[in-house]
């Protein structure tokens, strides 16, 4: 839960994240990302003291906001979310950035990872919405804050 709200804050004001904090990884340049077209990135997280490789999907909006969610599709387990279509959806009067799974078309809120449209499918056991990571863009560099407590 804390992850989700942190992500939401980060998304609304990306620079609010302390970009110098430990756990930030430089991922790519902002210009490496095409607006409204996701890109996958491979990160190394530490889980229980062990390094683990994690695939994330980075999305740059037309307003140059960068958001990070899990690359794994919760419904099929395939690593494809970065290849989904980006858009927006009106949620409580607010235009919210979204990402649709390219396999079965579930629509997720990119800021919180919440599923907005399940398209009649259930996530796999242990999956739900999309996991999110806080992102900061500093001097044109996209940095992702890894949540070391994640399991």
């Amino acid at each position: 839960m804390s992850t989700l709200s942190a992500a939401a804050e980060a998304a609304t004001d990306a620079t609010a994240v302390d970009a110098t904090a430990v756990g930030h990884q430089d991922v790519c340049l902002l210009t490496d990302l095409t607006p409204e077209r996701g890109a996958a990135a491979l990160l190394t997280e530490t889980v229980d003291g062990e390094p683990r490789r994690t695939q994330i999907a980075l999305v740059r909006t037309v307003g140059d906001l960068v958001l990070a969610v899990q690359h794994r599709d919760p419904v099929t387990g395939a690593n494809v979310m970065a290849r989904g279509l980006v858009g927006t959806r009106l949620v409580d009067g607010e235009e919210v950035p979204t990402l649709a799974s390219p396999l079965h078309k579930q629509v997720y809120d990119l800021r919180t990872g919440a599923c907005l449209d399940a398209a009649g499918k259930e996530p796999l056991p242990g999956e739900g919405g999309l996991r999110t990571w806080p992102v900061a863009v500093v001097d044109g560099v996209v940095r992702v804050l890894l949540d070391e407590s994640a399991s």
């Binding site: 989904g84 980006v86 858009g87 927006t88 959806r89 009106l90 235009e95 950035p97 649709a100 078309k105």
Partner: peptide, 8 residues
Amino acid sequence: SRGCDICR
């Protein structure tokens, strides 16, 4: 708005 997986 920026569309969706239907209209884009």
